[in-house]
Design a protein around this nucleic acid. Structure first.
Lengths: 327, 327
DNA sequence: TTGTATGCGTTATCAG
DNA sequence: CTGATAACGCATACAA
């Protein structure tokens, strides 16, 4: 009798398994006496219900999947914490997965999670559109940070476009007149939105002297993209903080000074950005809140509430530090 | 008929569910004709086996749990990648969990994972000993990075003690004569081992001028611990890179220069350490390899192999950069 | 080579 | 209030 099940508990407590199940789920009244015996037996045996069986029987598993694209990018762990904290309070289990920016891996994960019968999914796409997402008929989806506009589902994002626009207003205000946008993966929602904000600002102020490069949201990509620049603009606007780090480091290794020769900005405000040398001017995304809202949205959807708005957009905050200066 | 099961496939292919199961698992010969029909039906219906039912029936789930203590510490994501890559190749699913350094949360996760009937567990403890681990009779365990000496199970670690000793040999060689060890959580295996290496070196060289402080493995803790120092030693040896970052930043804010006024070292060599200002002298742990070995050890244990050695110890590497200098 | 029937651990339905 | 028992989706022993 290696693994103990509900029937072991029933035997020990001298009741039927039905009664055990009832005290376990509080699903029907049980006399104090029997309840006591059952609880005692559970304690003594160290019984832990088999969620596989529960899930099979009930059709719900009280677990949600969460796919992030790059566990290595310090922005995502903050999101994870927000999700975790909310889910824990609600009694949901979390299966965290890392797609490592690979669409194939993402597809595999989607299949695995489906087979595990998760109730809901919080999804941050790895990049290009993954149509596998459309097959997920039985699970509620919340798109976080990176929206799939074509797919249906809830979404939670920061106001990327507006955040970027504010950043550029500040840059233009402080005398910057030529720009380069070194962005992340072009197919990505966040890259697109940030580009939009950038472009809008350029147009609004009639600035023609700018270039745009798309790469990926990594340090290495930043390093690579900055080398492609023909000439140094007044400001290099990066798609995220990681890119900015790569840009600044290679700029330094090329003998340039930031911000004296050129201003550089990031996006996200990951924990490290304030400690970078120079401390990074960036647009703060409320990562923890984003995660928290995503979890909340999902749970509410799962409970049949929230028919009103399909999504929430959180404001960003301009963080001015020392990687930029007035020209 | 919302969700499709094996019987839908059977009906579509005009065979019995047993036959479907057979082609699914290759568990018995099936005539080419029927096999074709089944495969066709599976494709057309987009059938995906319910792993809950499979797990319930077979007693194994082909999934392993992985608990890490701090998803926010860039050292762990590297481990995760090593684990992921190996597991994927072996057809195992991974449930990644973050205990956030909380023993209670860790206990909760252990229960959840047990209830989900994982086959094996890769475990990095949050700190103090969690006796819940002893209840896990049915799952194989690999202790990664932080060993529970009392508990039985396999382990995979880097040679912390020796790594620390080598670091101190280098420091002493380069003229450092007084030290402070600003370490992580005292109950933690890695902190203990690193302390041992440190102490050994002190004793061996007859050095009396040193102090030791335990805190936790975070930036903030580093910042806090360095403020407790009465006087600046020749070298501040930190329990990990994050602590070193905190130490260096506060030292700077206090008007000291690193390494001119004091040498500072880390441990781990997280990706960021080479880009820190100044680039950090540290002891590299082969994070990806550590994760990979842990996964391999677990899978082999699961397959009944590996009775030989109970653990593997990987070597560290001394990385000399610019946060230290000869005195 | 194929099909039928049983059971994995739970919950829910139905009598009592 | 309590206890049998069917059913969840699948793999397998047993029959054919």
């Amino acid at each position: 009798m290696r693994k103990i099940g509900i029937k072991d508990v029933a035997k020990r407590a001298k009741v039927s398994i039905a009664t055990v199940s009832r005290v376990l789920n509080n699903s029907a009244p049980v006399s104090p006496e029997l309840k006591r015996r059952v609880i005692e037996a559970i304690e003594e045996l160290g019984y832990n219900p088999n969620t596989l069986a529960q899930g099979l029987r009930k059709g719900i598993t009280k677990t949600v999947g969460f796919i992030i694209p790059d566990i290595t990018n310090p922005f995502f762990p903050e999101l994870v914490k927000g999700v975790e904290d909310y889910l824990r309070r609600k009694g949901y289990a979390l299966i965290l997965c890392n797609s490592d920016q690979e669409v194939e891996e993402e597809t595999r994960l989607l299949k695995v999670l489906t087979a595990k019968k998760i109730d809901g999914l919080i999804f941050i796409g790895s990049g290009s559109y993954n149509k596998e997402i459309e097959n997920l008929k039985e699970v509620k989806i919340v798109f976080l940070d990176r929206v799939y506009e074509k797919a249906k589902g809830y979404y939670v994002v920061a106001d990327n476009e507006r955040g970027m626009k504010e950043l550029l207003e500040y840059l233009i205000d402080t005398g910057h007149r030529s720009f380069a946008l070194l962005n992340g993966n072009e197919e990505t929602f966040s890259a697109k939105e940030r580009y939009k904000g950038f472009k809008d600002a350029m147009d609004k102020h009639g600035i023609k002297d700018y270039t745009v490069i798309f790469g990926s949201f990594t340090y290495e990509s930043g390093s690579k993209m900055v080398r492609k620049l023909r000439k140094l603009p007044d400001a290099i606007v990066c798609g995220n903080d990681l890119i900015a780090f790569g840009v600044i480091d290679t700029l330094h290794s090329m003998g340039f000074s930031v911000p004296n020769d050129v201003s550089v900005t990031g996006f996200d405000d990951i924990p490290f950005s304030q400690h970078f040398k120079p401390p990074l001017t960036t647009v703060r995304q409320p990562a923890y809140e984003l995660g928290r809202h995503a979890a909340r949205t999902l749970i509410e959807a799962l409970n049949g509430k929230r028919k009103r708005k399909k999504g929430v957009i959180l404001p960003t905050e301009l963080i001015i530090r020392e990687s930029t200066k007035r020209r």
